[in-house]
């Protein structure tokens, strides 16, 4: 077959190119631009080269908030993924309870993020909050505004409450789409429930689990609103995660250069981790 070559066809790509330019390239380049300059008032800029990046990467505060961020994300993923999967396995497949369960599960996802922060802030208050008062009444010394451990516990619990449903709903959708024949074949082959989970459900859920983990990784790595409302990064800076650190730099100090360098490093970490994770999960597929 004769193919028609006409480079004017590139014009057809223009709309997409413009959209990508406006929603990604231009804003990103602005940040790149700031990150290599020093800014003064009256819109004066001086070349700074890689200085902000060097400073950031050698800054112990950055290391500390990055470390906290990694621990937080790891803890949250380790709890939410198995828990969400477990909930999905327990949810009914048919009958009237299906819709009840789905609505109940979807509720936390519908609450605005700052409201989630406020809710948990009030609920965990040691003197008047149900959770805080209850724990203290049980004889546990609990005060998230003063104890770093209690603050971490509350932040993690809040995130688990807010986001486990997402994992559960994704897994549920994956489970429902497994054809009955698989379960029937497993019954005939004499597979125990554990073998059904291990050899049918888990492999069939691989794709939704990849999506769930990826979404939860990105979201939890960028968490800001709920934590700032709940603890404000405290007590001290024990719950100061990357985004909180960044906002304090950018808005508090108005240090555009260092904040821009921070943003780029932050973005690259997420990009790299997501890529790495996705490649690892999909490696098997290529075989």
């Amino acid at each position: 077959m004769n193919k028609t070559w006409d480079n004017r066809a590139w014009w057809l790509v223009l709309p997409v190119f413009l959209m990508v330019a406006f929603n990604a390239l231009i804003p990103l380049m602005t940040v790149v631009n700031y990150s290599i300059q020093e800014s003064f008032a009256a819109n004066e800029f001086f070349w700074a080269g890689a200085r902000w990046f060097r400073e950031l990467l050698n800054n112990p505060d950055f290391h500390a908030s990055l470390g906290r961020q990694i621990i937080f994300t790891a803890v949250v993923l380790l709890i939410q993924v198995p828990l969400g999967l477990g909930i999905a396995l327990c949810m009914p497949r048919k009958g009237a309870w299906v819709s009840v369960c789905l609505v109940l599960m979807a509720l936390p996802l519908l609450v605005p993020w700052n409201v989630v922060g406020s809710m948990w802030n009030i609920m965990a208050l040691p003197d008047i909050g149900l959770l805080g008062w209850g724990l203290n009444a049980l004889g546990i010394d609990y005060n998230y505004t003063r104890q770093p451990g209690a603050a971490w516990f509350t932040v993690v619990l809040m995130d688990v409450w807010h986001w486990t449903s997402l994992v559960a709903l994704l897994c549920y959708a994956g489970l429902v789409s497994i054809p009955d024949a698989y379960y029937q074949a497993a019954k005939i082959d004499g597979a125990r429930p554990w073998a059904v989970f291990r050899f049918i459900q888990l492999p069939k859920l691989k794709h939704v689990l990849t999506i769930a983990i990826l979404l939860r990784f990105m979201d939890s790595f960028m968490i800001y609103t709920e934590v700032i409302v709940l603890t404000g990064g405290g007590p001290g800076s024990t719950t100061k995660f990357l985004s909180i650190d960044l906002v304090q730099k950018a808005l508090g100090g108005f240090d555009l250069g260092p904040a821009a360098a921070f943003s780029i490093v932050y973005f690259l970490i997420i990009l790299f981790a997501s890529w790495l994770f996705y490649t690892l999960m999909m490696r098997e597929e290529a075989k």
């Binding site: 698989y182 029937q184 004499g190 050899f199």
Partner: peptide, 16 residues
Amino acid sequence: PEERNIAQVFQFPVIY
């Protein structure tokens, strides 16, 4: 099905 000791091949191939 297990007690009956039967085997079945389905319309769509079921494999692990």
